[in-house]
């Protein structure tokens, strides 16, 4: 039995609660629809996120392997000096789109490889390979950031929405319904009592009138 709301069992309270229940039901329907859209969007994103994460992991592994290989070929110092020059120019554009009120990012990352900054006489082909591998990593980072943030935000909002749906479905709406039922029953009871009282008063009144008329006749 849900806990009743702390309101006086009056007709005005009944009318107000009925209106609020109606709004709660509409809110529930809206939230339920939002939840469905978020779930659908999340399911669609999760496949993409998993595939992107796996691809990013693969690219990072290859890039770190290439980095170790180039260190093995050129040594730490030479690699450090050559690495002072950037390998690519990266431009990032961030816009936001709304999924049922949840703002998720759209990341557009342009990775433009820069011209070779070093001569080839004292560098190894493994340096070029490592450079290429890290450019591959940079190329996927924008999309990875986009899908991971989107999934995270959608999941967080879905959780919040689900909590609200549950609160409405299992707590608030039953509370309103129970309170309304209680107030209705109290009001009905009051009406019945008033009716009985009125009837008694009426009977008493009629009886009084009849007695008064008898006395006058007599």
């Amino acid at each position: 039995m849900p806990e009743l709301l702390n309101v006086p069992p009056t007709r005005s309270a009944l009318l107000r609660l009925r209106q609020e229940l109606e709004e709660a039901r509409r809110g529930y329907e809206l939230l339920e629809r939002k939840r469905e859209v978020l779930v659908r969007e999340l399911m669609e994103m999760i496949d993409d996120a998993e595939a992107t994460q796996a691809e990013a992991r693969r690219r990072f592994q290859a890039a770190y392997q290439a980095l170790t290989e180039v260190r093995m070929r050129m040594g730490t110092d030479r690699l450090r000096w050559v690495s002072l020059a950037p390998a690519a120019a990266i431009q990032t554009q961030l816009t936001l789109r709304s999924v049922m009120g949840v703002l998720v990012p759209l990341v557009h990352m342009d990775v433009t490889p820069l011209p070779l900054p070093y001569g080839l006489g004292d560098t190894s082909a493994s340096l070029d390979e490592a450079r290429r591998r890290w450019q591959d990593v940079a190329a996927i980072l924008g999309h990875l950031a986009e899908v991971e943030t989107t999934v995270w935000r959608l999941a967080r909002d879905l959780q919040k929405t689900q909590r609200r749906v549950n609160a409405l479905e299992y707590v608030l709406i039953p509370q309103y319904e129970a309170t309304l039922a209680y107030i209705s029953s109290v009001l009905e009871e009051q009406e019945r009592e008033a009716f009985v009282q009125a009837k008694q008063v009426k009977q008493r009144h009629a009886k009084q009138e009849a007695e008064d008329e008898g006395e006058q006749d007599g």
Partner: peptide, 24 residues
């Protein structure tokens, strides 16, 4: 000597501290 010269070129181009360069 050529390798060292390239290191100096890289250090000067990227404005690395002279003492860092000298150590390497």
């Amino acid at each position: 000597e050529v390798d060292n010269l390239k290191t100096v070129l890289r250090a000067v181009h990227h404005r690395a501290p002279a003492e860092t360069l000298e150590a390497t």
